[in-house]
């Protein structure tokens, strides 16, 4: 996806949130809606400004490309977009989402080592054996740091009764 398109999507997203907050604020008393509404007005102006700024920039870039094409007799250096890299990034994000969704039901000690091994394999970080050693070592280290040393909670899931 082009940066320009993402800018417009984020601009529209902020705009939509602002409008939604404005509609909700219609039922509020003055003390509660005063600042949110002022901010909503500012977001509307800034979001529209950002979208316009992005469109102008896009137009300039297009003109520049057209000029380049014209001056090089129809040839231009097209920005190469590495699809493989994008797919790897997307898969990593999906892996994080799965980790976040499963950590509570299955527990830290099952999901974290699996996440490390899965991510290392996906990103080709290390060999399989090193991945497993790192997964066990790092999961143990974080548990010791958070739970044993700092007395902070980690989600234990189905192993809750066994370990604690």
């Amino acid at each position: 996806m082009k940066r320009n398109t993402i800018t417009i999507i984020i601009g529209l997203l902020f705009l939509a949130v602002a409008v939604l907050f404005y509609v909700i604020s219609l039922d509020m008393m003055r003390e509660a809606y005063l600042l949110p509404r002022l901010l909503v007005y500012a977001i509307v102006v800034l979001s529209i400004g950002m979208i316009i700024e992005s469109l102008i920039q896009h137009k300039k870039e297009q003109e520049k490309i057209e000029d380049e094409v014209a001056s090089s007799g129809g040839w231009t250096a097209k920005a190469s977009f590495d699809k493989a890299v994008a797919i790897k990034g997307t898969l990593f994000v999906l892996l994080i989402a799965i980790y976040v969704l499963l950590i509570q039901p299955l527990g830290y000690f099952i999901v974290t080592p699996l996440f490390i091994v899965g991510a290392f394999m996906l990103l080709k970080s290390t060999s399989f054996v090193v991945s497993i050693i790192t997964a066990i070592g790092f999961s143990g280290f974080v548990y010791a740091l958070f739970v044993v040393f700092l007395h902070l909670p980690v989600p234990m899931g189905i192993l809750a009764g066994l370990i604690q």
Binding site: I103, F115, A119, L123, S125, F146, P153, V154, P155
Partner: peptide, 20 residues
């Protein structure tokens, strides 16, 4: 240390930290 090793480690610290 390779960036590709750091990336999952960062995520684990973020997830466990925000849960805590």
């Amino acid at each position: 240390i390779k960036n590709r090793v750091l990336a999952p480690i960062i995520i684990i610290l973020c997830v466990i930290g925000s849960f805590a």
